[in-house]
Design a protein around this nucleic acid. Sequence first.
DNA 1: TACTGACATGTCGTTCTTGACATGTCGTGG
DNA 2: CCACGACATGTCAAGAACGACATGTCAGTA
Lengths: 177, 177
Amino acid sequence: MSLSHALLGLLAVEPASGYALTKSFEESLGRWAWHAGHTSIYPELNRLAERGLVEVTAEGARGSRTYAVTAAGREELRSWLLRPPQQSGKVRNEEVLRMFLLSALDPGDARVVLAHIAENTAAGAAELREVRAAHAGGSFTGPEGFGQLAAEFGLRQYQAVHEWALWAIEQLDADPA
Amino acid sequence: MSLSHALLGLLAVEPASGYALTKSFEESLGRWAWHAGHTSIYPELNRLAERGLVEVTAEGARGSRTYAVTAAGREELRSWLLRPPQQSGKVRNEEVLRMFLLSALDPGDARVVLAHIAENTAAGAAELREVRAAHAGGSFTGPEGFGQLAAEFGLRQYQAVHEWALWAIEQLDADPA
DNA sequence: TACTGACATGTCGTTCTTGACATGTCGTGG
DNA sequence: CCACGACATGTCAAGAACGACATGTCAGTA
């Protein structure tokens, strides 16, 4: 299961509580790579702890527990990341699905949807340019690098989709058959 | 559930059997937008038929049934596609997850993974350039357009990730901290 | 004729995910 | 001092998805 690796990855960069991890999923990881709510995260953390891949390193206010990866967890994460990517990874993305199904609409409707996409991706790109600026100048591994690599990735992704949408509108206009 | 809309979308472009839909998921839709196996597709088709969104229009050899969307199904699909995209769409993508977790590796390992990514995306882009060439010249709505829009989308996606990987390697080389 | 591989559809138990519900703490502002 | 919102963790039932298993047809070929 990939959720376990997502958690190991976040904890490998920086120890955190279940609550903090949930926030990470909401704000960055979950928007791009792997969605999960707290109802999946807490039980999974307990399972990882049972398997000895993470451990509680501190307990704070309001019953919070800070988890960190163990040596075994770090090794498991490394071997997963270096494992040759087998084809047929499960992909789920509702936004991309909408784009794939555009051809099912008549050209007028398709133009509307494409215009929405172009607008949203432009807004997203603008947002990420600010994030990137805020993270600029740090090192590229560790917590700093995480933000930078991710922001740059998302930004390029948004730009690519934005340009694709503009291209598609152009095609529709040129070929109203 | 998005699976139902994926099926409606494919059938709206062109009537097909469950088997043909399964192939579509394996070859294009499932690689980019929404993964599903035949064990999800067949029961869902039956459910859609019960709800009156699709219907069997022909029965062929080996017990095959060709489905087509009904007027109600087309309306449902259209309203879903035009619906304002609410934030927090569920995303799942193991490959992207790997990219997000790169910062958890030491720079040497990260370079290896990034090199793999650069290689794979270059190969994927080359493959899609051929697909695009094969689909060139048709109309942009209907079955033809589906292939063209999708191929172009995937190609740009691959290119963006490829360039991101090269950029990331450059950053690592420039900043070996 | 017999074999093989693609075509074609299905069930079933296990596992995963989700949304609703539940509980309690702590800091801030009215 | 009380209310509120953020912090913090959890359970549970319902629904969805996956892998393994199951069955049968049809065309080509050895």
